[in-house]
């Protein structure tokens, strides 16, 4: 792609939990994404820079970073949209341990998906017949609304409650749990509702919608969490959890 003229100053976090921002001069190009800029640095300026990406088309969820203070998927974020005065500051995602430079340890994030019972629980008896799931049914619609999550942790980095309470399961894990609560085939609902209730679960959410604001897939984890609050309250009143 032809150079668009000009240079972009990209300040990149170097180090682990302790470190500093190092400035690099990157040639400005047309339709350049933040990931393009980071890749340019790694390929041409400093091969020791660590960062993650895979698909480059917004599917894998591995390229999220903090860009000018906001969590973003970098492969689909155009420099033109986010650069301020010809400069970018790129750091690792918030709320996760930094391994090195722009790469975070995603384990705490995905461990919480497991803690939130974010996996399908089949019935113990093998199914004898198909379970009809009407696409227009409210449950299926609710599941559909949250199913396209790519696990990028942008919402997790945006959430102030995660920052305040490191045990909080966070928007993505709770959104995942909500899609399963709406899966009529699942046999682990009671355990799931117990897992997502309480101080580390849906009841800690402030409903301020930071997650929704930044989710690159335009999902609404806040609404999913509100659904969990409703369903767990009903289950608690009935003594089911």
């Amino acid at each position: 792609m032809p150079a668009d003229g000009g240079t972009l100053e990209v300040r990149v976090w170097r180090g682990g939990a302790e470190g500093r921002y190092v400035p690099y001069a990157v040639p400005r190009r047309q339709s350049q994404t933040v990931l393009d800029a980071v890749s340019y640095i790694q390929r041409h300026l400093d091969a020791s820079l660590s960062y993650r990406f895979a698909c480059r088309v917004g599917m894998c969820g591995s390229c999220a970073m903090t860009v000018n203070g906001k969590p973003r998927w970098t492969c689909r974020t155009h420099v033109a949209k986010v650069a301020r005065g010809g400069a970018l500051t790129v750091g690792p995602l918030r709320n996760l341990p930094v391994i090195k430079d722009l790469a975070c340890d995603m384990a705490p994030f995905f461990d919480k998906w497991a803690k939130a019972e974010g996996r399908f629980r089949p019935p113990t008896e093998p199914a004898r017949d198909f379970v009809p799931v009407r696409p227009a049914s409210p449950a299926r619609q609710a599941a559909d609304a949250g199913i396209e999550c790519i696990g990028c942790a942008v919402c997790y980095a945006a959430c102030d409650v995660v920052a305040a309470n490191p045990d909080y399961l966070g928007p993505a894990a709770l959104n995942r749990a909500w899609t399963l609560v709406n899966d009529v085939r699942d046999a682990g609902q009671r355990e799931r509702l117990a897992a997502v209730a309480g101080d580390a679960g849906c009841h800690a959410c402030h409903s301020q919608q930071g997650c929704r604001e930044y989710c690159p897939k335009h999902l609404n984890p806040t609404a999913a969490i509100a659904g969990l609050k409703r369903v767990t309250a009903r289950a608690a009143l009935k003594g089911e959890i």
Binding site: A194, A197, G198, D199, G201, A233, A236, I241
Partner: peptide
């Protein structure tokens, strides 16, 4: 030990009500 999920949920419900 933290309070049971049921109690936490009931507390939340009581606060809403």
């Amino acid at each position: 030990r933290p309070l049971a999920p049921r109690i936490e949920t009931l507390l939340w419900t009581a606060q809403r009500a």
